[in-house]
Amino acid sequence: MIKNYFRPKTIDELSELKLKTKGYLFSGGTDLFVKLRAGTIDTDTVIDTKYLNSRKIEITGNKLFIPINATYSELRMFIKQNNVNNMLENIVKTIGSPMIRNRGTPVGNISNASPAGDFVLASYLFNAQVIIEPTSRKLPVKNFIKGPGKIDLRENEFVYGIELEILNDYKFYFEKVGRRNAMIISIASLGLLLKEKDNKIKDIRIAFGSVAPYILRDENLEKSLIGETINEELFKHIAIEYQKLSSPITDVRATKEYRKSLVHNLVIKAYNNLFEKVVKE
């Protein structure tokens, strides 16, 4: 049961409280309060980060900065109003429900480091840098996340924000497979960003959620695709390669065999949606 509730206002105050009390940080509480109720987390101390005097969502150079406490709804509004990384909206709108998006935060999603985290997938696609205070460390999200629920964070540290690349002129495909539209944790998900020139790949980023203990993205494979002509053959090749790289598990949501087929079929579906005139459902 919660006995202590704190509202730190500064970075140092927050850091000291975390170190001293070993309490759990929360902003929207959409994850923490579910876990407290289920008994998967037991703590008597919670630290409410919403009173922290922090930066706002902003564009700095070619980066989009998303601070601690910024909700999915606020991010969605910002990208719409500023016409920046609009592709993100396709991911953000599939997260939870309006009530969850009004409280839940991208920084919370990344700090939870679930391989099914939809914003974790987004952060991999946009080469996110995780900004950690009070040490002012900055590291790529793929290094920050060490495994399911495991992150590179010292006892006095917390995630202050994340910085995403701003990408223009990319084709984008995102699909999350689940049993219904709202409030689902994905069975498998695919995000694909592709920049083309003269029907050849100039840049490609492919990331899968829920098909490995981490977000599956292979930058060497991506590099090997640059310069290749875009056609069905190439995407069949990509589909097979990622199928080999995936290592899904069987759980309450789906079997590993089904997830393996999804890895393949989602790539083909992405191709059909992006490049074929007749879209096959």
Binding site: Y5, G29, P98, M99
Partner: peptide, 12 residues
């Protein structure tokens, strides 16, 4: 904004 009162503390 609509939110879940079950996932919110009264102090919030």
């Amino acid at each position: 904004k609509n939110i879940h009162s079950c996932l919110m503390l009264a102090v919030e």
